[in-house]
Each structure stands twice: as C-alpha cells, then as structure tokens.
Design a protein around this nucleic acid. Structure first.
Length: 116
DNA sequence: GGAGTGACAGTTG
DNA sequence: GCAACTGCCACTC
C-alpha cells in the first residue's frame, strides 16, 4: 500500500490508533503529523467517520483547548469523558484537565517512517 | 460536476 | 490579553 494512495482519513485512523492509553492529542498535531497542519478540520471530519470504528479511540482526540468537542458524537452522553477518566485522564466539564500533562504529540513520540 | 458542510487551528484586529 | 475571521482539504448531497 502506498501512503500516497491512502487518504487523509486512513492515515488519521492509524495515528489515532497509536495513541497510548491515558494520553490525549489534538487535531492539529495529527494533521501536522500527516503534513497538513492547516487541515485540522479534515482530522475532525475523519473522527466523525472513525467514531464508527471501535479500533479508533477517538475519545483520545480533543481540540486545542482540550475540550471534548466530539463528546456529543459518541452517544450524546458523558461516555467520552468516562473513557478518558477510566484511562487516568482527568476530565472536568467535558474538558481535559492538565492537557499539557496528558498531551501526546505523534511528531514527538512516533516516527514518520513507521508501518504507516 | 458543483456547492456546501465540518469533532479545528492559526493569525489578525 | 481577549475576541472574531479567514483558510484549509476531504467528504457528502
């Protein structure tokens, strides 16, 4: 499979699936990791479709403010928050506390020359 | 084939 | 320092 052939969507899934438990990241980091920092919106859109896949922990992806913007997309309840808290991430009012502490940057933790 | 939408980010006033 | 606007790429209708 050629990465070039893969759509932004597919790559986003691979990155999100590699997010370690107890860690969270933001759309910009993923988009930048894919080489399209300005396309953070696409990442969000990808999450919209990825939320249908159980293999993609979309709950670990939050916006720049650490706000669980996609919470409503999970099931309309605080499921997303519960999942994060279950992993050790402190969430308050649909927002990740100490985001900096739980922040996980694919550009720093992962290498572009991975299986992806 | 064209226009509109979208779980954002970065920049400017 | 805070608030608001634009840009951006992919997907759906």
């Amino acid at each position: 499979m050629k990465p070039e052939t893969l759509h932004f969507f597919d790559r986003v899934y691979e990155v999100v699936k590699q997010i370690p438990s107890g860690k969270v990241t933001n759309y910009g980091a993923i988009a930048r990791y894919l080489g399209a920092a300005k396309s953070a919106r696409i990442v969000g859109y990808a999450m919209n479709a990825s939320h249908n896949m159980d293999d993609v922990p979309a709950h670990r992806v939050v916006n720049r403010n650490g706000l669980l913007t996609g919470k409503f997309h999970f099931d309309g309840t605080n499921l997303m928050q519960q999942l994060l808290e279950n992993e050790g991430v402190e969430v308050k009012n649909n927002q990740v506390k100490n985001l900096k502490d739980y922040y996980w940057d694919p550009n720093e933790e992962l290498n572009l020359h991975d299986t992806i």
